[in-house]
Nucleic acid binder design. Structure first.
Lengths: 223, 223
DNA sequence: ATATTTATTTAGATTAGTCTAAATTTTATT
DNA sequence: AATAAAATTTAGACTAATCTAAATAAATAT
């Protein structure tokens, strides 16, 4: 049995590793979780004893297979609950994260299985992120971010990789949502910002930070 | 902000006080929660500092108005979640308790409000227990237990006051459910057991313990 | 290659919730 | 009313998760 806190460590290791590819440093974990590095070191030893991670002093940490499965299970629960909140309980996509952070720790196989059925086996969450399946496979196609594209490319927004209320409110105020059509008018090398035409109407400027968190698909229907 | 554990103390105090009427003793709390009396004493001091309870050394404990409201809020959440599990997720009434014990601690006003709407404002839970309203009133009519009645009385089962899987399985194996018709054939003074006729069919013997947890209504349609 | 900076770990302390054992208060019994 | 029994509290200790400050290892820059 893992505590909420231990589960949060595993989830954070997963998220950092997913973004960086390599092993996860003590400091990056401490920063992400808002705690001190010394605390992280203690917990890494503990999770290593329980064989959820591979940990060598000073060498960073990677998830073991057991740890990886646990991370995917937590993410699966998080995203299913987000879907439930949006589809059944009238939550906005910018309101679900906090509550899902709590719900993802509820322990019950049957609960998740039945929730999945009740939602009719969704494959993506309200932010366009894939929901790992019951067998913990992530049927994720290659993911493209806005910043992967260049001038004149035309794209559709299909997801976001940051579900903080702050970011989602930002998108709302830019009038960007899932399905929005984006034409890149300019890539500014100076600050890595993008000038885009949104839905063939408004022209808006997108900062590097926003561009890094917008998941898009290239759009073939050029006019 | 209260921890899960503090909330469980408050809930337990409420439940014991509800059953006994008077103030709650350190020992009864310790026994109900499966911990030692010394531990309870420490926590009572803490909850008293936070003014959730009225506590005088050696004199037992009662909930303050603030504590009472919190208890009702927790019970409201517990029973709404039970309803959700049974009505939407195909749980049996004997499977919901454990999961609801976890879900009752999720913090989100909006979540509970929307869940209530989604379930169409239920007034009782799957065990026939009343759900406190959003304004935390318990619209409870006087409650009668099987053991309040005598030979030849005819009753309908409208609820249970123990939602442990053990008890509910017991009822299932006796073929007793909400709505069952009971005619009391015999009250055995020796062991306080009851011989009953169930739904005008089978004759079964009910132990004192079961009789204490079956909520019934007198039935006027005698044949 | 050495020195400096940065990252990480160790050591020791703190808080919440728990325990056992001893002391104290209340209740019950003679 | 005095004593015995039961309930409760106090004192001191433990574990998990955190912290700060100091020590050590790794990475970087001269």
């Amino acid at each position: 049995m893992l505590s909420f806190i231990e589960e949060n460590y595993i989830k954070s290791i997963y998220k950092i590793a997913e973004a960086s590819g390599g092993p996860v440093s003590t400091n990056s974990l401490a920063e992400k979780m808002g705690i001190k590095a010394a605390t992280v070191t203690d917990m890494l030893r503990k999770l290593s004893d329980k064989s959820f991670i591979h940990y060598q002093k000073y060498q960073g940490v990677t998830l073991s297979e057991k740890g990886n499965n646990r991370a995917l299970q937590i993410i699966r629960k998080h995203r299913l609950w987000e879907m439930f909140l949006v589809q059944k309980l009238n939550f906005g996509w910018d309101e679900v994260h906090e509550v899902a952070e709590q719900l993802e720790h509820i322990q019950s196989e049957k609960l998740i299985h039945e929730l999945d059925r009740f939602l009719d086996y969704p494959t993506i969450d309200p932010h366009g992120e894939p929901i790992p399946t019951a067998s913990l496979e992530m049927n994720r196609e290659p993911v493209w971010y806005l910043f992967n594209f260049r001038k004149a490319d035309i794209l559709t927004v299909v997801g976001v990789s940051d579900d903080s209320a702050l970011f989602l409110n930002m998108l709302d105020s830019l009038a960007i949502s899932l399905g929005s059509l984006i034409e890149i008018l300019e890539c500014n090398e100076y600050d890595n910002s993008f000038l885009i035409k949104l839905n063939n109407k408004a022209t808006v400027l997108i900062s590097q930070k926003v561009a890094q968190n917008l998941i898009v698909q290239p759009n073939n229907d050029r006019k």
